[in-house]
Amino acid sequence: MILRRRTLLAASAATATTIASPAIAQNYPRRPVQLIVAFAAGGSTDVGARILAAAAEKDLGQTITVVNKGGAGGQIGFTEIARARPDGYTLGFLNLPAVNTIILDPERKAAFNVDSFIPIVNQVLDPGLIWVKGDSPYKSVADLIDAAKKEPGKIRACTTGILSDDHLAILMMQEAAKCEFRIVHFDSGTQQLAGVMGGHVDVAFDNVGSIVKRIESGEARGLAVTDVVRSKFLPNVPCTKELGYTTVISSSTRGVGAPKGTPADIVKVIETAFLKAINSADMKQKMDVAGLALKPMVGAEYAKYYADTQAQAKKYTEWALKMR
């Protein structure tokens, strides 16, 4: 009796350890997988993550639960991902350049660095969008800049978090147009929406995905896409390049990553399942509805993109910190 209990215990204990072994990958996944999103529910990262989770579940053969850990521009969620057990049961959405700027800001004392994550597969590239409420007096970027010049520091522009891509976009715009905004940091697209729609802030620096439907319905008005080309979802909204703001180029990419130390064979299983889901026709259709542009990247390509973003973000973050 005692002997049997011991073997039972030992067997179950062994499967729970986190050391890499081929036996684990064969069994993986044995139980539901958590997918941490570092932003609140309802934001565009969350929307994309939920679509992806629902699609990848079928290929992975286990439930994928999206867990929102919003706050501090994603730092709380990213910290959680980095600190999670590297057993493949906790994955997370990596938002670039948010991950990078957090690492680069010394005041934040980030509990993770570039090497804390294994970028597995990218899902979305969402360009930035400057938008206002549907009945706003600002009809174009020029109107907005004029107003900001007339009353420096009075026009309230909101971001989805300090040092987010949106924050960098505001800084880029301030530099390019030589104007000054009053920057208000929210921590999710939902709060941004509430802020602009409720008239508490004047303009949102946001991403295309979260707002497409409201621009179509006239509730909101898009002023510019911070990209070199127009967005296919908003063919009537000019891009910053054509408006002459060639340095105001900002976007957010989102993909699935795992904490450092996750066994390579498990990473492979995840990559295969998620990539298959991202490339499916169903995914494309759903993401089109959500206004999110797909940009699948895996392996070396994604790793290089991750490293490049880090280098690029370094420049902007140092600049942002200097302005503080």
Partner: peptide, 21 residues
């Protein structure tokens, strides 16, 4: 206690990882 929700600076955590959240 934990990460400041706006700036992300750790507060009252005394280096204890469990307190970051």
């Amino acid at each position: 206690i934990g990460l400041d929700p706006v700036r992300g600076a750790p507060r009252f955590t005394f280096g204890i990882e469990e307190l970051y959240d």
